[in-house]
Design a protein around this nucleic acid. Structure first.
Lengths: 166, 166
DNA sequence: GATTTTATGTCAGCCTTGTTGACATTCCAA
DNA sequence: TTGGAATGTCAACAAGGCTGACATAAAATC
């Protein structure tokens, strides 16, 4: 795909040394990636787990506890502890399902949406700066490699809302 | 830099929706990224923290405790707990500095190198598969965006051994 | 030589976030 | 009506972060 190195199809990018660089890049970049929301959350009684829950409830309003368990890949006990504090603090509300009354559908309250906004604004700001500095071509490559690095199950979660708006 | 979209300089890759996709890509990809070593480590008495220590001692043999603290960004108490088990189990050894006898220089033992190999083989295998699937152009973009996402301090750590062999 | 600073180790205790196991409730579906 | 699914909750535990306080040895400085 518009690749200038295709003459000799150099495979030098697959050397162990290049791969090690990629591994460390993931390590250091992930630290940066999480640092801004972490800074906002510290001081509140919340942590990264709350951020994740709020993020995915925002992304998929009305999602069930079970869906969230699948996406986040934690135990229900662990998630429940987080959700309880979010309920208690009035950031998230659960509505009993109409079709299946066992299910709880999760929604952000206004207060929850406000926190979500603050967290994602911070995180997007860093991402935007990185994207802008790197340019669209690099961003495309970035997304392509990350997608290839996911487990198939995770990739499905990721692609789930690729086109569908709500 | 060799950008075909520069005609209209489309900035569509900077929309909030695109940024959200990037954020989730990081989240899901990082899970995949850590899952293989995690699987190896579970069952042993080790965790991700041990992996990180072993990785960076392998990368920079003879590094000091202080260096490691800076790179890993944790407290000495936290690192010490990890290092102690690695010493006790004979995976890492510390040699008193010749110039400065306060410093402990850290090295992997053969046993430590064996574990490091197992962990990094697993992690590189996934990275290699992703790189191969995505192609060199994408890999270049991947690295560019990740680097732009790091804090300056972290970027320095990352670039520290960019060219220098040992 | 005395003092201060640096590098490291260690003890105690706390927090977040993950885990397992057990058990209760509700309610859909066979 | 009964089995199983979706959910909640209690208890206990572990990993791996954190802070604070204190100890030691060695280097650096006054």
């Amino acid at each position: 795909m518009a690749d200038p190195t295709t003459g000799s199809e150099s495979l030098l990018f697959l050397t162990d040394e290049q791969l090690r660089k990629g591994i460390e890049a993931m390590f250091f970049a992930y630290r940066g990636f999480t640092s801004d929301p972490d800074r906002i959350l510290e001081g509140m009684d919340y942590g990264r787990a709350h951020h994740r829950a709020v993020h995915f409830i925002h992304r998929s309003p009305g999602t069930t506890v079970g869906n969230l368990l699948t996406i986040l890949g934690v135990t229900k006990q662990s998630l429940n502890r987080v959700l309880r504090t979010l309920f208690d603090d009035g950031l998230v509300e659960a509505r009993v399902g109409k079709q299946d009354k066992r299910e709880r559908h999760l929604y952000l309250t206004d207060k929850g949406a406000t926190l979500e906004r603050a967290l994602s604004d911070a995180q997007r700001a860093r991402m935007r700066a990185a994207y802008r500095a790197a340019g669209p071509q690099a961003v495309h490559g970035f997304r392509t490699v990350l997608e290839a690095m996911m487990d198939p199950e995770q990739r499905r979660q990721y692609q789930g809302l690729k086109e569908s708006g709500t």
